[in-house]
Structure formats: C-alpha cells, structure tokens
Lab assay of single mutants.
Amino acid sequence: HHGSGALAALHADGPHAGLPVTRSDARVLIFNDWEERKRSEPWLRLDMSDKAIFRRYPHLR
C-alpha cells in the first residue's frame, strides 16, 4: 500500500489554513481522498498530475 498513512504538511493558519504546503503534500491528500472514494466509486481514476493539483489547490501554482 503505497501512500496510506502518509501525512501531508498543511498550512496551520492564514489564508491557506488546512491546505497542503507543497505539491508532494497535495499528492498525499489527493491519493488518500482517491483511496477513500474508490470504495464507493471503483471506476474513479487517480490523477496526481500537476494540472490536477493546480485545479484542486490553485494556491500551489
């Protein structure tokens, strides 16, 4: 199991509170979210491209 239990660094406060600090933090969040959702949506594709990251977390651009 590759990303399970990996912890992402999140901004503690300010405008980005609760959001990932780096792209690799964002990838951890996206992976964990996908892993949760694919139980009920097995067709869901995992997209951890930069484009997917920016779409979801525009502050990382």
Rank of each mutant, 00 (worst) to 15 (best):
R23I: 15
I30S: 00
N32P: 00
A26P: 00
H59V: 00
A26S: 05
H59A: 01
I53F: 02
A17T: 07
G18M: 09
R45A: 15
K38W: 07
D33N: 06
W43H: 10
A9K: 14
L46P: 03
G5F: 10
V28P: 00
R45I: 13
R45E: 12
S24P: 04
S40Y: 15
G5S: 09
A12Y: 07
I30P: 01
S24M: 14
E41F: 08
F31K: 10
W34S: 01
L29F: 04
M48G: 01
R61Q: 09
D47V: 03
K51G: 08
W34L: 01
D50N: 11
H11D: 02
K38L: 07
G14F: 03
E36K: 11
E36G: 07
V28F: 06
D47R: 02
T22W: 13
R23M: 15
L19N: 03
Y57R: 00
R27Y: 05
N32S: 08
L60M: 02
R55F: 15
D13R: 06
L29A: 05
A17E: 10
R55M: 13
K38N: 08
P20Y: 00
M48I: 12
G18N: 05
A9D: 08
F54C: 06
S24H: 14
H1C: 14
T22L: 03
F31R: 08
D47E: 05
D50Y: 07
M48V: 11
E35I: 15
G14L: 03
A12L: 12
A52D: 07
N32G: 06
I53G: 02
K51R: 10
R23F: 12
L44V: 07
H11S: 03
S40T: 14
T22N: 06
R23S: 08
H2C: 15
S24Q: 12
H1Q: 11
S24A: 14
A9R: 14
S40V: 10
L46N: 01
H16L: 14
F31E: 03
Y57G: 01
A17H: 06
R37T: 03
A26R: 15
A8T: 05
A52Y: 11
L60A: 00
R45H: 09
K38V: 13
R23K: 15
G14T: 03
I53A: 00
L19D: 08
H16R: 05
I30K: 01
I30D: 00
H2M: 12
I53P: 00
R37F: 03
L46K: 01
E36C: 12
F31M: 07
I30N: 01
D47Q: 03
A12G: 07
R56I: 10
E36W: 08
W34V: 01
M48T: 10
W34Y: 11
H2W: 13
D50K: 06
G14W: 04
L19I: 02
A52P: 00
K51M: 09
P58I: 02
L10Y: 09
S4H: 11
H1K: 12
K38M: 08
R45W: 06
W34T: 15
H59S: 02
H2S: 12
R61F: 10
G18C: 05
F31P: 00
D25Q: 05
W43M: 08
L60Y: 00
A9H: 14
R61N: 08
K38H: 13
A9V: 13
H2F: 15
R37G: 04
D13V: 08
I30W: 01
W34A: 00
H11Q: 03
P58S: 02
S49Y: 01
V28N: 05
H1Y: 13
L60I: 02
S40A: 12
P42M: 10
A8P: 13
P42V: 04
L7Y: 10
D13W: 10
M48R: 02
F54Q: 04
A17Q: 10
H59N: 02
H16N: 11
M48E: 02
R61K: 11
Y57D: 00
D50G: 02
V21N: 04
V21T: 05
E36S: 13
A12K: 13
D33A: 09
S40R: 12
K51H: 09
R61M: 12
R61Y: 10
I30C: 02
S4W: 12
H16D: 07
G14V: 15
G3F: 12
H1M: 10
V28Q: 09
F31Q: 05
W43G: 10
A26H: 00
A8N: 04
H2P: 15
A52M: 07
Y57F: 14
K51C: 15
H59L: 00
E36P: 01
S24W: 14
D47S: 02
K38I: 13
L7A: 10
S40P: 02
H59Q: 01
L46M: 12
H2Q: 11
M48Y: 06
H16M: 09
A6R: 15
L46S: 00
D25I: 03
R56G: 01
R23A: 10
P58R: 02
R39P: 10
P42L: 04
P15K: 06
Y57V: 00
G18I: 03
S24G: 15
A9T: 13
P42H: 08
L44D: 02
D33C: 07
H59C: 00
H11P: 03
K38F: 08
D25W: 04
P42G: 05
P15G: 03
L29D: 00
K51E: 15
L46G: 01
E41C: 14
S4C: 15
S49H: 02
I30Q: 01
D33V: 05
K51I: 12
L44R: 06
H16W: 15
G3P: 10
L60K: 00
M48Q: 05
W34D: 14
G14P: 05
E35H: 11
A17P: 03
K38S: 09
W43F: 09
A6Q: 11
D33W: 07
P42N: 04
G14A: 04
A52E: 15
R56F: 05
F54E: 07
V28I: 15
A52R: 02
